[in-house]
Each structure stands twice: as C-alpha cells, then as structure tokens.
Deep mutational scan, measured.
Amino acid sequence: MATGGRRGAAAAPLLVAVAALLLGAAGHLYPGEVCPGMDIRNNLTRLHELENCSVIEGHLQILLMFKTRPEDFRDLSFPKLIMITDYLLLFRVYGLESLKDLFPNLTVIRGSRLFFNYALVIFEMVHLKELGLYNLMNITRGSVRIEKNNELCYLATIDWSRILDSVEDNYIVLNKDDNEECGDICPGTAKGKTNCPATVINGQFVERCWTHSHCQKVCPTICKSHGCTAEGLCCHSECLGNCSQPDDPTKCVACRNFYLDGRCVETCPPPYYHFQDWRCVNFSFCQDLHHKCKNSRRQGCHQYVIHNNKCIPECPSGYTMNSSNLLCTPCLGPCPKVCHLLEGEKTIDSVTSAQELRGCTVINGSLIINIRGGNNLAAELEANLGLIEEISGYLKIRRSYALVSLSFFRKLRLIRGETLEIGNYSFYALDNQNLRQLWDWSKHNLTITQGKLFFHYNPKLCLSEIHKMEEVSGTKGRQERNDIALKTNGDQASCENELLKFSYIRTSFDKI
C-alpha cells in the first residue's frame, strides 16, 4: 500500500482533458527560462521544448504516446526543470519506465491550478516501474492521483506527508504495488545497510526511497516546507523545498512566496507586481503582455491589467481597466465587458449561442446573426445582446428569417469595421425574408467608422429604411451602385405612401 494514499474509496472516473512563447529569463536562482504550460502528445517531438525550461508557468501534460519505446527515452533528460506552477499529468506514455532521468531536479509542483483537485496525476502508464522524482520536495496545493499503472512499484516507500501538507485526498490505487509483488529495495538494503531515512506512518517504520538508488530526502521537522541542505541544516524561511546553503534567500532552489532578481522575498516591493503567484514583474512586463494579447485571437491570451499590486489576466467583477495605466478602477454604474472572439468572429444561430455573449459591452471581433427560429426570440436576444455598444469588426445579418427588427441591439452605437466582410463591408444584410426595420432612427444613433453597407434580398425592408441608415451611420456616399439592390429590397412591402385627393359631386333626387 502506498504510504499516505487512500484505498478502496469510491472515486469519480478520471477524465483526461485534452506555445513556446518565453516569458522571460528567471535569473540567477533558476538555471534556465520560464516556459508556458505545455500539452505534449502523440510523439516526442515537442518534448524537446523543455530543454531550457527551469519553470513551467502553467501545467505540463505528457500523454497518448503509443509508439514510443524505452530506448526512445534513454537520452532524454531535462535537468534544468525545477518547478511547475500548476500540475504534472502523465497518461498512456508507452515505453517510459521512470522519471528519474527525465526530470531529475523537479523540486516543486505548486498546484496553482489543479487537474480535478490533483497536482500530480500518473494514470495508465503501462510501462512505468517507478516514479523516480527523487528531488520532489513540495506539492504546495492539491493532491496526488496514481492509478492503474500495472508495473509501478516504489510507492509504499514514499512518505507523501513530507511532500504535501495533507495526504487525506491522495488516491493511489490499482498499481502493481497493490499486489505486494514489488519487493522494493532501498539503497544499501541488499548489503544489509540502512542508507535512507525511515519514518513512521500508520504504525509502520519504513525506509523512504524513490528507487533502488535514490533515497527520499527527509528534512528535520523544524525546517517545515522550506527544505534543508545535504547536511540537514534548514533553508531560509522564504525558500521552498530545498537550498544549497542554509538561511540564505539567494540560495533557495525555489521560493515559498515570490522570486525577485535572484532572491526569494515575502512580497513584491514597489515598483514590482505579483505575477502568477510566484514571481515579481515590473510595469513594462505587464504592459507588454497586455499589448501582445490586445489584437491576438490565441486562446488563453489575456490583456493583463494591474489590481491590488498584482498583474492579473482581467479586472475583477465591479472594476474596469483604465487604459492609460492598466489599473483596475471601480465602475460607475454597470461595468464594461470586452469579449474577445477566439477566431475573430462568432455566429449567433440560437439563443444558446447568444447567451455566451451575455453582459458583453464591447465585441472584439465580428458578429454573424443567422437565426431561423426560436421561442420568445426578441426578448431572449435583447437579454443577451442588448448591452453590446461596440463591435470592432463587422455585423452580418444573414438568412435570419425569424427577425423582424434589429432593435434587440438596443445599445449598439459603434461598428468600427477594423475587419470587413469580403474585404469591403462593415454591415452586411443578406436574404432576411421578414426583416422590416433596422432601428427606430428617431431614437437610435449608430456610427460606422469604416467599410460599406450591403443589402440584398431583404424583400420587406424598404429602401427608405436603408437610406436612413446611410445618413445616420455616416456611410452615405461610400456605397457603390450594386451594394444596395434596388429590386430585391422592399419588393414585397408597401414602401411608397402617396396622399390621394378626392373630389365629389353631391346629387339628390331633384338636383344634379
């Protein structure tokens, strides 16, 4: 039985969820670079991206490699990797027998973001014989899940209580170790020597080791999670996991709180800001991140802002960003909400898709409305799209047979046209069989910064309504002859009103 693990408890099935942008060198404390989270699957090609990484700022997932063999891993080693800020997950990587050479110096898994409450997941690794993470000293947050690894031993010899604050939620089941077939031998045991430290858990006094050649490092209890030197002297209180010299914040392997210019500090002093819960960055760093993602459509890219001495992905609820200094300031009234469309555009074809934009005031991208039916549609669209004030790209209304009016965009005031449909149009209306009105132009103002209007096959939309939009939106004169079809717009509506004058002759039985 794995020490510190839980057996036999019912657990939810383990679901495996399925960018080499360097964020800056980590400095003297770390020998390499800070790398983003990685999802490495199918083959070993991307694994080489770990070569210079000291910190993975995010998670590391290595999974679904069915053609790899043990010899493929023999020359692979990433000794610079010290810390993973989120979680480490391995799933069905064939041929991998140990992690001792792959990650010989991995010391800390912070667990800032977890995989279903777990910071370390080893699942269905069919050839893994031992973990071998002999320098792993601290899992700051989260638990361990090690399950269905039929060859995995050296679990009962690990004292997880020396690595985690609590072992109650560890789930370590259905491994070879369960069948008591392992016969784990710690260093020196074969020669009758006791080389590794022994600890007591559940009444068992057991030597602690990761492999037959690597003991588990056990520091004096007084050192807590700070770690200790090879001689057993406690590291500085700002260290986490390990250090090369005692009581020196510049000799830590990793930091308990924050890293700044080669030393570990309790908090980031001005003019620095907390970033990702582990390091200090200056304003320029946060500003660069903001600008890199301002026009990016890459998933996970955030326009970072500053709030409460932190550089964070977005302002919290009730705050909006001051564009001059990136500071989050309290909103006066309802907060603006910028919604970034991942692929640059979004099609609204149902109430469900409209709900995804609920509360958005600025759309960074283009909207395509293609709704053919739905219950209580006008009210639903207004509830979900009615706060949109600005669209950076274009607005396209296409084959939306259920629409009679666009009044559900009740606050839309600006279409920038930074991206144009077919390279020309910022407003595009095609084949809307029941569209009769755009907006009530006596109450609604709309500016279209650039781009043209396109109207074709809107049989109940009168040309007068379209011409009014040209005047109000500032697009009059931009359109070419064929942009607004004269014969297919309003051709099934009563669009022309003329005053009919009647004269009559009164007659009676005795007068003409």
Rank of each mutant, 00 (worst) to 15 (best):
C228P: 02
G318T: 03
A254L: 10
F285P: 01
L99K: 00
N170K: 06
T229L: 13
H214E: 06
T45S: 14
P36C: 06
D75H: 03
V173Y: 02
C286N: 02
W278E: 04
N295R: 12
D261C: 05
I185T: 05
E97K: 13
F66H: 03
Y273W: 10
I163A: 01
C239D: 00
R141H: 06
C182E: 05
K191D: 03
N282F: 02
S284W: 09
E124F: 08
K80G: 14
K80V: 04
D75N: 15
E180T: 04
I163N: 01
P36A: 09
S324R: 10
E238K: 07
R145M: 07
N322G: 05
I222L: 04
L240M: 03
V305R: 11
F275I: 05
G333R: 08
D169R: 08
L136D: 01
C293T: 01
P249H: 06
C311L: 12
Y94D: 07
T267P: 04
F115S: 10
M83H: 07
M38I: 01
E207W: 15
C311R: 01
P220T: 10
C311Y: 06
S112R: 15
G232D: 15
K80Y: 15
T229N: 13
N282C: 01
R162Y: 12
M137D: 06
K100G: 05
V55F: 01
D261V: 03
C186I: 10
L63H: 02
I158Q: 03
C243H: 00
D165C: 09
L88A: 06
H226E: 06
V121R: 01
E57W: 03
S324Q: 03
R41V: 15
V305K: 12
F285L: 12
K310M: 08
L114W: 02
V108N: 11
C301S: 12
F103W: 03
P79W: 06
G232P: 05
Q303M: 14
E49K: 15
V34K: 10
R69K: 04
H127A: 14
T189W: 06
A230I: 05
G32D: 13
N257E: 03
N175F: 10
N135K: 08
V265T: 09
F258M: 06
H59G: 09
C234G: 01
V144L: 07
G227W: 02
N257T: 10
H307K: 06
N170H: 03
T250Y: 09
K129Y: 05
R69A: 12
R256P: 04
D72H: 02
N138P: 01
H226I: 09
V108G: 02
C301R: 06
P79G: 13
L90G: 00
D184A: 13
G192S: 14
T211S: 04
L64P: 15
E57N: 07
T85L: 11
P271W: 15
C223P: 01
W210K: 06
C186F: 03
D178G: 11
D248W: 03
N309Y: 06
G227T: 02
T199E: 05
V93R: 00
H290S: 06
I82K: 03
D178A: 12
L44C: 05
I62G: 01
E314C: 05
D184C: 12
Q216L: 09
V206L: 11
E314P: 05
I122R: 00
P270F: 10
N52L: 04
C255M: 01
E314Y: 08
G32E: 13
S317E: 05
A119E: 00
W278H: 05
L89P: 00
E124T: 06
C311F: 06
P104C: 01
I306W: 11
H226D: 11
I163Q: 02
P104H: 01
D159E: 11
G142I: 01
C228G: 15
L29I: 15
P269R: 01
Y87N: 01
G318Q: 08
L240H: 03
H236M: 04
N138S: 12
H48E: 14
V305S: 06
N308R: 11
C328V: 03
L289Y: 11
G232R: 03
M83S: 10
G241I: 02
K224A: 07
N179L: 06
L136K: 01
Q287I: 10
F115C: 06
D169C: 12
E314G: 07
S143L: 09
T107I: 15
L164W: 04
Y273L: 07
T189K: 11
N117T: 08
N202G: 15
D288A: 10
L63C: 02
D169H: 11
L63E: 02
K67T: 14
I109A: 00
D86Y: 01
G300N: 07
G241V: 04
T189H: 10
L174R: 06
G142V: 02
E57R: 07
H59A: 08
C255I: 00
E180S: 07
G192I: 02
L50Q: 01
H59Y: 12
I56S: 01
C223G: 02
C215R: 07
E207H: 08
P197H: 06
I84F: 00
N105W: 02
L60D: 01
N105K: 08
S296D: 14
I185V: 13
Y87A: 01
C219S: 03
T107H: 04
D247V: 11
G32M: 05
Y272H: 15
T229Y: 05
A190F: 07
I62W: 02
T157F: 04
L63G: 08
T107C: 03
W160I: 03
G318R: 09
R145C: 07
Q204P: 08
D177Q: 07
W160P: 00
T229Q: 14
Q216R: 04
R46Q: 05
L44A: 10
S225N: 11
T229A: 12
K310N: 05
M83T: 05
T221E: 13
K129N: 05
L260A: 12
N150K: 05
I40V: 15
C286S: 02
K80T: 12
E57P: 00
D248T: 04
I163H: 01
L99Y: 01
L99D: 00
S213R: 12
L88Q: 01
H290L: 09
L44Q: 04
N117L: 06
Q245N: 09
E231N: 05
M125S: 14
N42C: 07
S98H: 03
V305C: 08
Y134W: 13
G192H: 08
S323E: 12
V281W: 00
M321V: 13
L29H: 06
G142P: 00
N175D: 06
T68G: 04
F116W: 09
L90Y: 01
G95T: 06
N43Y: 08
R256M: 09
I62S: 00
F73A: 06
N195F: 08
P271N: 08
L50W: 05
E130V: 06
N42H: 14
P246I: 05
R208Q: 03
N309D: 06
Q276C: 02
I82S: 07
T267F: 06
L174T: 14
P197E: 05
L102Q: 00
N43C: 03
L90V: 09
Y304R: 05
E314V: 05
P104D: 00
C301I: 00
L174A: 05
D75I: 11
S143P: 12
V200M: 05
C280Y: 00
L131I: 12
T140W: 06
G227C: 05
D248Q: 08
Y273M: 15
K251C: 05
H214D: 03
C328T: 04
R297M: 08
C301F: 09
Y259H: 10
E207N: 15
I185S: 07
R298E: 08
C53P: 00
A198H: 03
C196M: 09
W210M: 05
F275N: 15
E147L: 15
C153E: 01
N242Q: 12
Y272R: 01
M38H: 11
P31H: 12
T45P: 14
I139L: 06
P249S: 05
H59K: 13
R298N: 08
N322Q: 09
H307S: 09
K148M: 09
L326V: 10
I158P: 04
L120P: 01
K224L: 14
D159Q: 09
S323K: 05
L102S: 01
L63R: 06
D101G: 09
T320R: 07
H48F: 11
H302D: 12
R263V: 11
C153W: 04
E49A: 05
P197K: 08
F115V: 13
V144N: 02
P271E: 09
D177R: 07
H212N: 10
L44G: 04
L240W: 01
A156W: 03
G333Q: 15
P79F: 05
Y154L: 03
I82Y: 13
C264Q: 01
N179K: 15
F91E: 01
T194H: 09
C311S: 02
G111W: 01
L332N: 14
P70S: 04
V108L: 10
D178P: 03
R113T: 11
Q303N: 08
S324Y: 02
E51L: 04
E147G: 15
D39L: 05
T85H: 02
